[in-house]
Design a protein around this nucleic acid. Structure first.
Lengths: 145, 145
DNA sequence: CCTAAAAAGGATAATAAGGTCTTAATATAT
DNA sequence: ATATATTAAGACCTTATTATCCTTTTTAGG
């Protein structure tokens, strides 16, 4: 198990892919996205339907339709995607899975993990989706395999 | 989803519990551990069987039997438990779930997450199981609810 | 030796996550 | 208006995770 669920990994990769294409001014179909990020097509379709309903990405039906992102969407922090898909457990949950775990009633690992959780949260909140377009353009980073 | 799988959360809590009891010089039965850490008894039994086979905890059958830990086991790093249960994905896996993701062929988040993964690994490798006994003794930390 | 207490092992069930297929709705271009 | 391309929605299947039960093995103590 990684940091994110598989669903969330697909979501992030797909959003990066759409953002990249959007910056070149276009819409992308689900087939192309799925093959571009190496995910199962129908499964990713479900994920993007959900992100679309939440306004995280935009979509249009019919010929020349597809997924795209408005300016505003491109400036969203990555945390929006993670929260939508995996919820807030990664940011606020107890490492040992206890329901009651706080400064006042800490689990043994509470203090040890506090800093790490904060860093993850800061990272995802302070990084926007569009920040990765340039590197994808230049082929410096990759989204599949 | 938290950082660890539910199985791993139970494992860590149980090991802390056994370590604590061991430091008071005793063996603990599965019923007592399960109720002490708030986990399903039979499920935890499976987990401890596995940890026992791997030598992470010790066990004895028969009357006055139960789980306990040798000196050496108490000095193990927490990473032993996490690796045994959840594998190494948390330490070395790509945040976006790509199989190929390295310094040479990074995913977009590779550099962002490098530091966080390292910190998690360092924390779990540099912290031993017995370090938490004192706080549990004093009631400063809790393992259930 | 016999009994009882405990973990070990095997089989199975319940739930959640991941994945696929089919049909419906919608928009575009002719 | 009609045909076509595309996402949306609903139903369903598969696999992995979590949870439970029952039987077997081991061992201490009388």
């Amino acid at each position: 198990m990684g940091i994110f669920s598989k669903t969330c990994e697909y979501a992030l990769r797909a959003v990066f892919f759409i953002a990249h294409r959007t910056s070149e001014g276009g819409r992308v179909g689900i087939k192309e996205i799925a093959s571009g990020v190496g995910s199962p097509e129908y499964f990713l379709a479900k994920i993007l339907q959900d992100l679309s309903k939440r306004g995280i990405v935009q979509s249009a039906k019919g010929p020349n339709g597809g997924f795209f992102m408005e300016e505003k969407s491109l400036k969203q922090p990555l945390s929006n995607i993670v929260l939508a898909v995996d919820g807030k457990a990664l940011f606020t949950g107890c490492a040992l899975g206890l329901e009651v775990c706080s400064e006042k009633e800490p689990c043994p690992l509470h203090n040890e993990f506090k800093n790490i959780r904060n860093q993850i949260q800061q990272l995802l909140q302070n990084t926007t989706i569009e920040e990765f377009n340039e590197d994808l353009n230049l082929g410096l980073t990759s989204l599949r395999k």
